[in-house]
Computed example of a mutant assay.
Amino acid sequence: MNCQPWLKALVYKCTNINQTCLLCDEAAGQPRPICSACELTLPWLHQHCLRCALPLAMAGLVCGQCSRRPPAFEQVIAPWHYGFPLDTLISRFKHNSQWPLGRLLAEMLSLDLGHRFAEGLPRPALLLPVPLARRRLRERGFNQAGMLARWLAKGLGIACHEGLLLRTRETPAQQTLDARARRRNLRQAFRVLDNDALQGRHVALVDDVVTTGATAQAIAKVLRQAGASRVDVYCLARTAKPGQA
């Protein structure tokens, strides 16, 4: 079942009334439906790897994994690390179809990216959402990465192409696998439908959370082989290594 026809109606309620904070139900007092106090409680990611955005103890460093084996993507941009209460907000958006939460987070990511573009971050020509497997798309009824990409495209004025990337085979859920199994799980799992659309272009992948970076790496390799000149990754949150605070 595809639930997306109701998307605009639900988001309209979120964005076109007197703003109430979606976290605490108090008056937001700002254009977005989140109050300043709740916005400050989000787990903002300040110190991280310059390539994969892995949370680190110090800023301005590249993690050991990226130093030893530079990824196919150039940079991961994530405003937050995956912690409370952001993890709950993403889960409610992703698994409970609470689209206004996704819209709010996409707007905040869009603002963050806008500031980074103004400070010199190269602006991509195209946004590409990470595709869902068909079975999972049927079960969930929507692709959260596709919805995020459309909202970002509107906020940033960048084209979004949802049909360019295809997941070619069903794979077990990444959440159940360790890092090595995730990489094996994604071999030959993606392909590009139109190589000409990528020739010499800077593109950005869009996803909700980057965990080990295996999905981003697998897709970035395919995109580079298809002719993309640069691949960045835009996501809401980056997880820490297991056992890391």
Results as ranks from 00 to 15, higher is better:
242 P>R: 10
155 G>A: 13
98 Q>V: 14
4 Q>A: 13
104 L>A: 03
68 R>V: 05
114 G>Y: 02
50 L>W: 03
232 D>V: 03
77 I>M: 13
224 R>K: 15
140 R>I: 01
190 F>P: 01
204 A>L: 11
46 H>G: 05
181 A>K: 12
187 R>P: 00
190 F>D: 06
144 Q>N: 07
230 R>N: 06
99 W>C: 01
182 R>F: 04
213 G>M: 04
127 L>V: 10
64 G>E: 07
203 V>P: 02
208 D>C: 10
130 V>D: 06
57 A>T: 14
84 F>K: 13
76 V>Q: 01
1 M>I: 12
174 Q>F: 05
238 R>C: 06
40 L>G: 07
173 A>Y: 00
147 M>V: 15
93 F>P: 02
149 A>Y: 10
161 H>P: 00
51 R>Y: 06
115 H>G: 07
35 C>R: 10
174 Q>E: 04
132 L>E: 02
131 P>I: 04
7 L>A: 04
100 P>R: 03
201 R>N: 03
108 M>Q: 13
171 T>A: 13
207 D>K: 08
79 P>E: 01
110 S>T: 15
135 R>V: 08
15 T>G: 03
93 F>T: 07
71 P>A: 15
52 C>E: 01
149 A>T: 09
120 G>P: 02
11 V>M: 00
69 R>D: 11
138 R>S: 07
101 L>T: 05
237 A>Y: 03
167 R>G: 01
152 L>C: 09
22 L>T: 02
92 R>Y: 05
13 K>Q: 14
136 R>A: 14
45 L>V: 05
28 A>E: 00
136 R>M: 05
185 N>L: 10
113 L>T: 12
167 R>I: 06
72 A>M: 11
188 Q>A: 15
22 L>W: 02
179 A>W: 03
48 H>Q: 15
52 C>V: 09
231 V>P: 04
143 N>P: 02
215 T>Y: 07
22 L>V: 01
16 N>G: 05
176 T>H: 12
222 V>Q: 13
142 F>C: 01
174 Q>P: 04
216 A>H: 03
4 Q>V: 15
142 F>A: 08
61 L>Y: 06
223 L>R: 06
159 A>Q: 14
190 F>L: 13
115 H>N: 12
200 G>E: 09
136 R>W: 09
49 C>I: 04
5 P>K: 02
56 L>K: 05
168 T>K: 13
13 K>S: 10
161 H>C: 13
51 R>W: 08
17 I>L: 13
143 N>I: 10
16 N>T: 09
7 L>Q: 04
18 N>E: 13
29 G>T: 14
20 T>C: 08
137 L>T: 06
100 P>N: 01
75 Q>P: 00
186 L>W: 06
202 H>F: 07
213 G>T: 01
207 D>W: 03
83 G>A: 15
224 R>E: 13
34 I>L: 13
49 C>Q: 04
89 L>C: 11
114 G>E: 15
141 G>A: 11
83 G>L: 06
27 A>T: 12
27 A>Q: 08
28 A>F: 02
122 P>T: 07
226 A>R: 09
131 P>L: 06
112 D>E: 14
79 P>A: 13
133 A>M: 07
198 L>V: 07
184 R>G: 11
55 P>W: 05
122 P>S: 11
146 G>T: 00
84 F>S: 14
206 V>T: 08
37 A>Q: 14
25 D>R: 11
81 H>Y: 12
